[in-house]
Design a protein around this nucleic acid. Structure first.
Lengths: 247, 247
DNA sequence: CCCAAGGAGTGCACTGAGTGCCATGCGTAC
DNA sequence: GTACGCATGGCACTCAGTGCACTCCTTGGG
């Protein structure tokens, strides 16, 4: 029974990595030990006892830091979710709502992109283990709810505001996840930012309100669109976007 | 230790309820016993031993019919998912894809609407128990994947086909769930079909392809749309739909 | 310098979900 | 009648997760 020399991954602590180190070294040691074993012999073949033995700590301490075995695989989502909630609450209230939730989604991507190797290994793990996939769904669901709640507030005056909020939040999350998975499958080689921008642009093209007018340019009051009637609607939307001067 | 007189709810068996009864009466007895106890004392306060004692069967038999404790709460989703997959595979391939997945989503609603009281009780249960919510997410995820896979096939030729497939599938599921929850909150009093139609119409207004032209009516070759530039895009899309002669 | 308080870490025993294995009973085919 | 298959039941086991009590170790106050 050896103890780990140090964190194998550049793991983020609960606190911001300031001048000193984050507060709980034990937490990071548990994550490192867990991932080492998960990658060696698989998630289900690794027991809590194995993890705490490798980390050199007591079994009871594991559950002090992680409420369940699944949580050790997603050690940073709690902080990221708090960041997203804070970001959405921080706005002045006159931002374009769809753009705002897209920007919030980019926060999640940035967290993944901060530790590419860790993210890719976790991706491979969750892809294989059904229990982890289910857990990830509940994590993603909380992000989606945060976006939807924000949109519901912003759409409070609209008819069908909650419906639109739920649908747009789901679309944003789906687009984000599509781009994220594409990036993860590339082993972190692709340009994550560009991929997610492209995906979110599609959502904005379908749901976005007024495209941001370039500063100093007077928006036209009316716009005329001409389309063949049998063209698919999404093509029409693209044309509208183009006509309106947005990429 | 009493045994149950019969199924408390009009439970659907695994087989279609044809002339005779479905094959496993034991399965239905377990579901009935489980729900009785869940409603009496709560999900977490009920053990598998409690359930099998009330149902009058051996503990091992429970896990013969349900792989986990959560599964007994969603006894019919497996069949419904198979129905949806079959429905999507049955098409001739020239249907409008978005309309097709909307129709597939209506299959799920119909399953809920078949047993309103059961559905409402289950809704209250899952709303309270985090573990059941997480399980429900994994169920919903499978529906969403079925829709997305269908759309991916239909969109194989498109650029960004998989992105569009994922986003539209997520939007359809979100709209369906929004309507479903609204109906469940009304204790099954609202018109479920109308509610979900309205919700899905919003998704179709954003993503729908060519609206079905009424038979015998010649489509115009071009259409002109005029809109105020600062109108939200979804309003523009609604206008387009209206101009094109769709709801 | 001593002691009290509190928090972090630990050991222990316990509950309950889920699994593997084998025995039992029952109906059917040969 | 016997053999086979199948549904069920019983038993023992693993392992995640929890409650409780104990030990340090640090901090602060007298």
């Amino acid at each position: 029974m050896r103890t780990l020399p140090g964190a194998t991954f550049p793991l983020m602590s609960s606190e911001k990595a300031g001048a000193g180190t984050g507060k709980p070294p034990m937490r990071d040691a548990l994550v490192a030990a867990a991932f080492q074993l998960f990658l060696e012999r698989g998630y289900e073949q690794t027991t809590i006892d194995d993890i705490v033995a490798l980390a050199g700590v007591g079994r009871r301490s594991f559950f002090r830091y992680f409420p369940s075995k699944e949580d050790v695989v997603f050690p940073d989502h709690e902080r990221c979710l708090a960041d997203m909630t804070a970001f959405l609450a921080a706005g002045s209230g006159d931002e374009e709502p769809v753009r705002r939730v897209c920007d919030a989604a980019r926060l999640v991507l940035r967290m993944y992109a901060e530790n590419p190797t860790f993210s890719v290994q976790r991706y491979r793990l969750t892809k294989q283990v059904p229990g982890l996939r289910a857990y990830e769904l509940s994590v993603v669901w909380r992000y989606e709810r945060a976006l939807a709640e924000y949109l519901r507030r912003r759409f409070a005056a609209r008819r069908d505001g909650t419906l639109q909020a739920d649908v747009i939040a789901a679309a944003v999350v789906a687009a984000h996840n599509n781009a994220l998975r594409s990036w993860l499958r590339s082993d972190g080689q692709d340009d994550a930012g560009a991929t997610v921008d492209h995906a979110l642009a599609y959502v904005q093209s379908a749901f976005g309100g007024t495209p941001v007018p370039p500063a100093g340019e007077q928006p036209e009051d009316v716009v005329v669109v001409v389309s063949r009637r049998d063209a698919p609607l999404w093509r029409v939307v693209q044309e509208i976007e183009a006509t309106l001067g947005r990429g």
